Amino acid sequence: MTHTAHFLEVKNLKQYFPIRKGVFRRTVGYVRAVDDVSFHIDDQETLGLVGESGCGKTTTGRTILHLLDPTEGEVFFMGGNVRDKLRDDPREVRQKMQIIFQDPYGSLNPRMTVNEIVGEAVRYYGLCSKKELGDYISEVLLRCGLLPEHRFRYPHEFSGGQRQRIGIARALALKPNFVVCDEPVSALDVSIRSQILNLLKDLQEEMKLTYLFISHDLAVVRHISDRIAVMYLGKLVEMTSKVEFFDNPLHPYSHALLSAIPVPDPARQRQHIILEGDVPSPANPPEGCRFNPRCKYVMEKCKKEEPPLIEVGANHFVACFLHDK
């Protein structure tokens, strides 16, 4: 089923987790981790998905890859529905869509050597002969900034940055087209972060990759993204180009996120916007706009109706009644 001109398109995606209680484990409610999210990513583009911890960014990434089955909604990838593609030829989809996990410690099997970690899927998909496997893995490791002799070591023998490079090598060894980068630098030292980000940018150019880059750090997202989507409590609240987002943010939540970025010049103090209250629970989101309990511009309408994500400028989408024309 061909459908879309976009490389990847997400339509009305929902991911609800049931809350079960009592002896009979009856479902008493749902955690609405991802609630009606739609966006697209073009070929060789990087979309940065940002928001505070617990807003549903990682769940969105995993649901797009169908590591979690969507409650509702559809994902179209390279012209076809991912659900249909997985039914017809799961191997092809799994090879073309990969993920780099957040935790370089927990995502690698401590009992396997690097050779086994990177080579396992390469063998499964038959990307090269048994004779060529060692050379192929060495080549992938070199490309990711590691040495061929690292093949025979175990994960505990590496630093955090090197482990993340192994995670990147494992994902890219399969020659994917689309990679979900799930906070790939948040567990690393600041000095290592820029190296890994530059590596990801170089590999994107070299291998013609498309990224969904998930992060809570706007400085990191600014460095790598072409467009930025802001998520709050399972919903997208703003989406636009990187330049437009940093020059002209429209949603009150985007203003608060941007005000938290440290300024390197002590003479220029940025006015911090302190949000009142805590993030509401996704199991019991507020009525109307999800951000209304913490918003200083809140109107009566915000408490009753949910603002739709509408285009207010050229490719600048926002879900806020302040910008409702």
Rank of each mutant, 00 (worst) to 15 (best):
R143K: 12
L188W: 03
E149I: 06
P70F: 08
E132K: 13
F39P: 03
V31C: 10
F77Y: 15
L203K: 02
E183V: 07
I192G: 01
K175R: 15
A121G: 10
L108H: 01
P184H: 08
A5N: 09
Q162P: 09
L218G: 04
S281M: 03
E72F: 13
D69H: 13
F24V: 08
T60I: 14
V82T: 11
K301E: 15
A171R: 03
K85Y: 07
T59R: 00
R111D: 03
A260P: 01
M239R: 03
L67G: 11
M97S: 10
Q195M: 00
V140K: 00
L209N: 00
S241V: 11
L309I: 01
C320F: 01
D226R: 09
G29H: 12
P90L: 05
A187V: 02
S53Q: 07
E116N: 10
E276A: 15
P282I: 03
M1C: 02
V50D: 00
Q271N: 15
F213L: 10
I224R: 00
L141C: 07
Q195I: 02
G145F: 07
C289P: 04
D265Q: 06
Y16W: 10
S129P: 05
H272W: 14
S138Y: 00
Q269N: 14
F317C: 01
G161W: 06
F152N: 15
T4K: 00
E132L: 11
I228G: 02
L203F: 07
K11L: 09
E276T: 15
L49M: 10
K296E: 15
H251S: 08
C295R: 11
R290H: 13
E139N: 14
K201D: 08
V75F: 10
A283W: 01
M112N: 05
M239S: 03
F77G: 05
D189G: 05
Q95H: 12
V179C: 05
G79Y: 13
Q95S: 09
A229G: 15
F317V: 04
H255G: 02
T59E: 02
E132N: 11
R62D: 03
G288F: 05
E287V: 11
D189N: 09
S159L: 12
V279P: 02
K296M: 11
T4G: 04
L86W: 01
A256M: 04
F17S: 09
D69N: 12
H156N: 10
N109G: 10
K208M: 12
I19M: 10
L258W: 04
D89A: 12
D35S: 06
R193P: 03
L67Y: 09
D84K: 14
H216T: 09
R170T: 11
K175Y: 09
N81E: 13
K96T: 05
L141T: 04
D182S: 07
K301R: 14
I310K: 05
D182V: 00
V190G: 04
Y16F: 14
H150W: 08
M299G: 06
P110E: 06
R32G: 00
G79H: 12
I100H: 06
S259H: 06
D278I: 15
D35E: 07
C144G: 03
V263Y: 05
V82A: 06
E183G: 08
R94Q: 08
L258D: 03
K208W: 05
L47R: 01
N115W: 13
V37K: 02
L86C: 07
